[in-house]
Amino acid sequence: MSRRSRAVAWYVLLTALSLVVLFPVYMTLVVAISTPVDYLRAGQPLHPVAPQWGVFANAWTEGDLGRKFALSAVVTAVIVGCQLATSVCAAYAFAFLRFPGRRVLFAVFTATLLLPLEVTLLPNIDTVLRLGWLNSVQGLAVPFLATAFGTFLIRQGFLGIPRDLRDAARLDGLSHLQVLWRVAIPLTRPVIASFGVVAFLSAWNQYTWPRAVITEERWETVQIGLKSLSAATVEQGNVGPAAAVIAALPVLALLIVLQKQLIRGLTAGAVKG
């Protein structure tokens, strides 16, 4: 095969694979803008039937999506902000401070990586219930304010700072807090940003925990709201898909912009280098 025809073959394969990956998204758009009853009568074709664009505005008001977006944004901001703060502090302690019990505490942090949310779900629901935190921002956010993953990732970044630089800063009489703020954080900004993007993504996309501690519709996050909207009658069968499109778009746009940070954050620990 010539070089040229080989390139063509790769393009054909890449395009075919893209179509497969995008097919569920395309069909969701088709169902969203079609008039459900007409679409059903036409035998679920590959193209929209009796398109009506008002469905997006409809889903927005019917699902009270404005409120849900605001709540999700607040909870995500609290989680990401606090995770950055707690992880940076803990990472600094593990990277640069000497203190008794360091290895034990490091092991304690590591152990949390072995405890998925689903295992501790029932007792944690109990705790939140007893604190009176059902249907509240605290209930949604507090269990996630610290993370060993973030601590280890940022610690790794801190350890990459040249020793000479740190020693020079200490000789200049900078306190640990000043070293943290003026040397360590600025030098590891790419790592911290990558962690921030991953933290944002997982906080925004949470499902199981909010589903457990939210019992009132007005406290539903975007993700939980999608379930309520998708369980509808045939006549309303386009509202859920429309809401899913609305829910997906801002995150998709944001992550296309922050692609580099996201990919760095996701591949950390998976691939050497």
Binding site: M27, Y207, L226, P241, L266
Partner: peptide
Amino acid sequence: FASTVATSVAVASVLFFT
């Protein structure tokens, strides 16, 4: 190819429910 990483499990589930 990377785009599905941005879709939440809830969005993906609604897509496949559709």
